[in-house]
């Protein structure tokens, strides 16, 4: 949860109003009875910065954070009764930044321990957004185990994607808070946020600078970048294109005459930006990304990968197994019933 809250704090600091941020949070950490610091979420063991703080606006929390709601937010297919604050009101001029974190695996990310979103779902959702001109550019960032597989299925234009780790790699947490007994932030997000601290509203830092900062030794994983769908050179793409709100104002000349005369001057283009954060932290722990849990997952995941890597073999052996077990069952039933 500290991952998403840290990112939320950063985009807010860079001038995105809350109305343009959609924060989806399991939100079960701050007020968890096992949290020794009630109402606080710290991104570091030093506990010098409280991310939960005074002014955060969580749009979707707890059981509202579902795969379906996330896809609905992206595609805009909402019930008419959903309020503005829960909608992604973007258009063809919007740059959208999507940050996701949680437990994941090869081509999926878990939501709340009971659902998962696959890379195909996100890719389709982005394509639908593109078709309805709901974005100008998307910057997709994901911090999870085997994160880079999540953006491998994208096929819509103008998407820049980055993830924390390769296939078969875990994303590790940055440090443990011994008082809480859990790890507090992931390495990838920690270093990205640290880099973002050097960026301000008028910064000229580019995406390339961000990607150059990636260091496999520090992350303990190989962070990846996918820019083949993106049609601008990334060394000319400013970080603030995605992380900063650069709404521009234009000054009107004083009105003197009674009849209509409008002479606006000095206008600049506006970029309305909208941000979506998803944090699918587990509901079991107080704060997500416990190292042990990650290892537990990697065991499970390796099975899935093996299955996926060799589909023909799986088909025949699977079939074989099915028939053998059915046959065994038949034999047992027959034996029991035929017994006189």
């Amino acid at each position: 949860m500290a991952n998403a809250l840290g990112m939320y704090r950063t985009v807010k600091r860079l001038g995105i109003p809350d109305s343009n941020i959609i924060l989806m949070l399991a939100d079960d950490a701050a007020c968890n009875s096992r949290n020794k610091f009630p109402g606080c979420v710290y991104p570091a063991a030093a506990r010098d910065l409280d991310l939960y703080g005074d002014n955060i606006e969580v749009d979707y929390r707890g059981y509202e954070v579902t795969v379906e709601n996330f896809i609905r937010v992206l595609t805009g297919r909402m019930d008419s009764s959903v309020p503005r604050s829960k909608r992604l009101l973007s258009d063809d001029r919007s740059n959208v930044f999507v940050y996701m974190t949680g437990h994941g695996g090869n081509e999926f990310l878990k939501f709340q321990d009971n659902e998962e979103i696959s890379a195909f779902d996100i890719a389709d959702a982005f394509e639908q957004m593109w078709q309805k001109k709901r974005y100008n550019e998307i910057f997709f960032m994901i911090d999870t185990c085997q994160a880079n597989t999540m953006y491998s299925k994208f096929y819509s234009p103008n998407i820049l994607a980055t993830g924390s780790s390769k296939l078969d790699e875990n994303s590790y947490s940055y440090e443990n808070d011994m008082d809480l007994g859990i790890s507090v932030i992931d390495r990838f997000t920690h270093y990205v946020l640290r880099f973002m601290e050097s960026v301000n509203k008028t910064s000229q830092a580019t995406m390339q600078d961000l990607f150059d900062m990636y260091d496999p030794d520090k992350f303990a994983s190989h962070a990846g970048v996918r820019s083949d769908l993106f049609n601008r050179p990334i060394d000319q793409t400013l970080i603030t294109d995605f992380f900063g709100g650069v709404s521009q104002a234009e000054v009107l000349a004083p009105e003197e005459e009674f009849y209509y005369s409008s002479t606006p001057e000095g206008g600049h283009q506006q970029e309305s930006e909208s941000f979506t954060h998803v944090d699918s932290a587990t509901t079991s722990g107080a704060v997500k990304s416990n190292n042990d849990e990650i290892h537990g997952y990697s065991d499970l995941l390796s099975v899935v990968q093996d299955l996926q890597r060799e589909p023909p073999k799986r088909d025949t052996t699977g079939l074989f197994r099915t028939w053998v077990s059915s046959g065994l069952m038949f034999a047992l039933v027959a034996w029991v019933s035929m017994r006189k």
Binding site: E68, T75, G76, M78, L307, R314, M329
Partner: peptide, 27 residues
């Protein structure tokens, strides 16, 4: 028509998910 809430594409389930759901039920 585009934003119709019922238009949401069903989530993608890989084939092995379907087997996993149906086999214990039906076998």
């Amino acid at each position: 028509a585009f934003f119709n809430p019922g238009n949401l594409g069903m989530l993608y389930f890989p084939a092995e998910h379907k087997y996993a759901v149906y086999t214990p039920l039906f076998a």
